[in-house]
């Protein structure tokens, strides 16, 4: 027959009911824990911003960690909840490989976004209007050489 794909076949279910439930429970706890860690880091960044001399490097580091944690969360959602981890390798690859395009997609867009800021600051500096009195001024306007 031309489509011997039976609809019964979805993902290969190796595990028993109990095994499945414990896996879902573990993943749920994992996702919650990662989210809580993200929140804690978010609050730390918040505190650091309130401090007098926030270390740009540390803030970037923390933000990087949050990004990695988010990717981990995404991995568990796709792999366990969406059962992609249980599919045959062919399917996994056709999903994952095209997503690689995001690397250049994100990289080129953000790179050019940053470049736009630098070019503007250099050739068309805007005098920024302070919105509130009394806040410390920190601006990289019109000072950076073209890099």
């Amino acid at each position: 027959m031309e489509h011997s794909t039976t609809s019964e076949v979805t993902f290969t279910q190796h595990h028993s009911d109990a095994e499945f439930r414990s896996r879902v429970r573990k993943t749920t706890i994992l996702l919650s824990v990662i989210t809580i860690i993200e929140l804690i880091i978010g609050l730390v960044i918040y505190k650091m911003h309130k401090g007098d001399h926030p270390s740009e490097f540390l803030i970037m580091l923390f933000k990087g960690v949050v990004c990695i944690l988010t990717l981990a969360k995404a991995f568990y959602i796709v792999s366990v909840f969406m059962h992609l981890g249980d599919e045959v390798r062919n399917l996994i690859m056709t999903i994952i490989v095209p997503l690689m395009l995001f690397v250049w997609f994100i990289g080129a867009f953000l790179w050019d976004g940053g470049s736009y800021r630098k070019l503007r600051n250099r050739y068309h500096p805007v005098i920024e209007t302070p919105a509130r009195q009394g806040e410390h001024e920190k601006s990289d306007t019109a000072t950076h050489p073209l890099d």
Binding site: L101, W104, F105, A108, W111, D112, S115, Y116, L119
Partner: peptide, 14 residues
């Protein structure tokens, strides 16, 4: 997928 900005060389692209 990797070459789109060659349409934009004179747009102010980096």
């Amino acid at each position: 997928f990797l070459v789109w900005a060659h349409h934009m060389f004179v747009s102010g692209l980096n």
